[in-house]
Nucleic acid binder design. Structure first.
Length: 236
DNA sequence: GCATCGCTCCGTCATAGCTT
DNA sequence: AAGCTATGACGGAGCGATGC
């Protein structure tokens, strides 16, 4: 098996597992809302990727072998299903509207709403971490997190295409088509970079939230134990 | 030293959803 | 409806770790 082939193979089980998780979690859970090939990704046999949840990470090794036995699933069919899944940003926003305290990634409308342009502000639970493009501050109970979206500008040397009406020969048309394609590829390249950057921020945000909730949970459990002790004095 | 693995990053394609 | 954007998916490259 080739290097990449194996890589894809290993990832299959997670994708299948993830799909099942999605179907069983139509209640708005964030679980498995992120899928891509970067950072903590896990790839599938057919090359499909996902970022596993914590629980899924714990079971990757177990499901790996069973996935091998299942064989190849029609990638097109799976892709159709996958493509209908909402983006992580939408899921996060939906979640934030249902559950207070969940960080929200705003759509790029900040100019109209008073915040500086290209900065999305999210309220997140207490935590401290810093990234290349944004940072959490721990100065209060609800620190803010900012994502700075770089203004998209065409790199130097890129010339906007001439209007189609000014083109005559097939050669000119071909050049125009090539130019359009290159422009599109360049834009998409930048979009992909930005998308990946946002996704990383999102994942970090979730990880941070997990850490905070774990601490909160621990505290509550301790508090409960204390109250139990107080309310039920020893009878002997 | 070489082979393999696992991880990360990147460019590209496909396409859903939004905008004009 | 056409164009555009965001993002999931795919495949390749590079790199460090590990085993031989």
């Amino acid at each position: 098996m080739s290097k990449c082939g194996r890589k894809k193979y290993i990832k299959t089980s997670i994708r299948q597992m993830t799909m099942e998780t999605v179907e069983s979690q139509q209640d708005g859970s964030v679980t498995d809302s992120v899928t891509d090939s970067d950072s903590t990704h896990v790839q599938t046999q057919t090359g499909q990727n996902s970022i596993p949840t914590l629980a899924q990470v714990a079971t990757i090794a177990e499901t790996d072998e069973s996935a091998e036995a299942e064989g190849v699933i029609d990638s097109h069919k799976r892709r159709e299903i996958l493509s209908r899944r909402p983006s992580y940003r939408k899921i996060l926003n939906e979640l934030s509207s249902d559950v207070p305290g969940v960080p929200k990634i705003e759509e790029e409308k900040s100019e109209e709403e008073g915040t500086p342009p290209n900065i999305a502000t999210m309220a997140v639970p207490t935590s401290i971490y810093q990234t290349s493009t944004g940072q959490y501050t721990a100065t209060g109970d609800m620190p803010t997190y900012q994502i700075r979206t770089p203004t998209t500008a065409l790199p130097q040397g890129v010339v906007m295409a001439a209007s189609p009406g000014s083109l005559h020969s097939p050669q000119q048309l071909a050049e125009e088509a090539t130019r359009k394609r290159e422009l599109r590829l360049m834009k998409n390249r930048e979009a992909a970079k930005e998308c990946r950057r946002r996704k990383k921020e999102y994942v970090k945000c979730l990880e941070s939230r997990v850490a905070v909730l774990e601490v909160q949970n621990k505290k509550l459990i301790e508090e409960l134990e204390t109250l139990k002790d107080i309310c039920s004095p020893k009878t002997d």
